[in-house]
Amino acid sequence: MSAKENILARIRSANAMHAAAGDVSFTPSERLSAHPRGPMPTMQWDALERFKACSIAAASTVDELSTRADIPAAVARYLKQNNLPMSGVCWPEFGDLDWHGAGLEMQPRPAAGDDKVGVTGSFCALAETGTLVLLSGESQAATTSLLPETHIAVISTSRVVVSMEDVWELMREEIGELPRQVNFVSGPSRTADIEMTLVYGAHGPFRVHVLLLDE
């Protein structure tokens, strides 16, 4: 018998000794096709306001723009204010913007180890926890939000959803299946592994700046 058969046989004989336990309102196949939600906490806040507040609580910063063309100026303003390098990389979807006009050098390619600024979009954003939802794909390099010290994410206000369950629902509707990787990002990389003291920039970005686009 293979290891798989042995393990499954042991699970079955162990479970045969115990009466069915836990949530029995769905059989496994029903549960897999209906994917029922568990009890949800009360979420009576305004999703956009909640997203902003939670982003800030997660140590991100937030700026609000009214048109897509304002993105380069907003990025330049943020980088200048924080004394950061005025060059970096962006997802190809932002390659057409007038970065030069804002004094920036932004290349539409995946990030390498020494790129300092990465500009990405976001599939959607999660109000509950102030979280960006980034998907892997052809033109959505994961490195852009991971390797640079500064991550700037552009998200349309219409893509802010309430709960994590809503994210899955949106993905089922719009994509049908999961991409190779879904990353939930809530603020800059951090650690408290030395004397429980919080430090930002453990391995990923030191800072996350969110540009909320209300078109």
Binding site: S136, G137, R180, Q181, R190
Partner: peptide, 16 residues
């Protein structure tokens, strides 16, 4: 801070 849900290896056309 980061939740990563991974389904399979790199797909055709994926950048990483």
């Amino acid at each position: 801070n980061y939740l990563s849900v991974t389904t399979g290896p790199k797909r055709d056309g994926d950048s990483d």
